[in-house]
Nucleic acid binder design. Structure first.
Lengths: 232, 232
DNA sequence: CAGCTAATGCCACTAAGTGGCAAAAATATG
DNA sequence: CATATTTTTGCCACTTAGTGGCATTAGCTG
């Protein structure tokens, strides 16, 4: 059980009041989650410090005191461990999408709001910092960028499947839903880039602001025109 | 000289009339191009036959009678060789973009027309078939899909750079150009998917038709709305 | 405490990708 | 035509990502 791809998707109903969502699990599960988190944190640190290619899996596993075999029971690849933070967000997006109501909005607006709602739920300690490191690594490392893009693509298709299963979108061969979705992804990526390249310590709130700004620019993209430069 | 990434970007001015663009090169260059093309063709064949992961580089190199070292002087990775056909198209898109005139069109229209113009230039024998095989492989092989997506991303940025250098697009932090570009990429991918999944033997002309259709759907993507399903 | 289950560690193995250097082929030069 | 020069190739050794098998350990259950 518990294949690498699917994170910890087995949260047991909580007993008391406030819990970090990982408490009250059987000891075994908690231990698993701890090593998983240790791998993510240490990987982000080491990759940032010595570079992605400059860090071997053996070094990472030594640092966390875990066998390489165990690493691959938790993650699909070396790239995978470093992109885990972003994957958390999209997993929640998918969950949100399962229960949201259209309420007269366009698909684009609905997806934007879902994304923002999911972002509001990323309350885990240090999440913003992890996403930041992850993003910067992706920019600097081709293979990580490729992996992230691939994940994005798979997630897009999953989102599209949920849209089609829950909503009436007419002809399944209609190209518009995927165009709208790719627009959402584009806005998200762009917001993330801007957010990550800003100096200082970005917060979840500032990411939300960047997201809103990116979405606001969408309508203008269609009518944008260009003039030949006169200078240079 | 001649790094793996940059294909044959050194076409010498032709002497006589009609030439396949690779003639009249020094013998050495022609030989290089021949082995390169042999690697591409054989790779597409073997990958399609026995699967991408079911074919080792050693097997491919044996079949073409070339050392593995030579393979890596021509291509960046195992994935790279199989996505060469698509890369050819985008290289021409970039060239076209260097000389095109805005002529009152929107950026979106200009990019669409450039893409169609580039497509018109893909006259190499069997190009359509190669793209078809390449695309189907990408759909079936995660690592190839990731590689293709990464290439797309890099190319997008290159296109964006050309746009900014040649045209007056206002604030460089403006988000609209990239949104427009990602829309173009989305339409392209979608057209390619539809084209490749159609039965029979797709042609360049039918790809052009799919492309026009995809672009026609763009404006509707913004205003698309959804109703909750009543069935199921 | 005994017995079961599942995660882990260890070992050996395949295959992608890289670097170095000598052999060979193509081109330029006398 | 022979030779010097430059470019390309082949070969070999090496690192590292990723996988499969099996014994061991640690958490769970009656």
């Amino acid at each position: 059980m518990s294949e690498p791809g699917s994170a910890a998707a087995t949260p047991i109903a909580s007993g008391t009041a406030q819990e970090t969502a990982s408490e009250r699990l059987p000891l075994r599960e908690r231990k698993k989650l701890r090593t998983r988190q240790a791998l993510i944190d240490t990987a982000l640190e080491m990759f940032t410090e010595r570079g992605f290619d400059g860090t071997t899996l053996d070094q990472l596993c030594d640092a966390v005191e875990v066998s390489k075999r165990t690493f691959f029971r938790n993650f699909l690849s070396k790239e995978d461990v470093a992109s885990a933070p972003t994957q958390d967000l999209w997993r929640v997006v998918l969950e949100e999408l399962e229960t949201c109501e259209p309420g007269g909005r366009t698909v684009l607006e609905m997806l934007r709001d879902t994304l923002l709602a999911a972002l509001d739920q990323m309350t885990a300690e240090g999440w913003a910092r992890r996403v930041l490191l992850s993003r910067r690594l992706a920019e600097a490392t081709p293979s990580m960028n490729a992996h992230g893009l691939h994940f994005c693509d798979r997630t897009s298709r999953a989102v599209l499947a949920v849209l089609h299963s829950r909503f009436e979108l007419g002809d399944p061969a209609d190209l518009r839903p995927r165009l709208a979705l790719d627009l959402v992804v584009s806005a998200f990526q762009q917001a993330l880039d801007d957010w990550a390249s800003r100096p200082g310590t970005p917060t979840r709130a500032s990411l939300a602001a960047d997201l809103r700004e990116a979405f606001a620019a969408v309508p203008g993209a269609l009518t944008l025109t260009a003039e030949l430069r006169t200078d240079a």
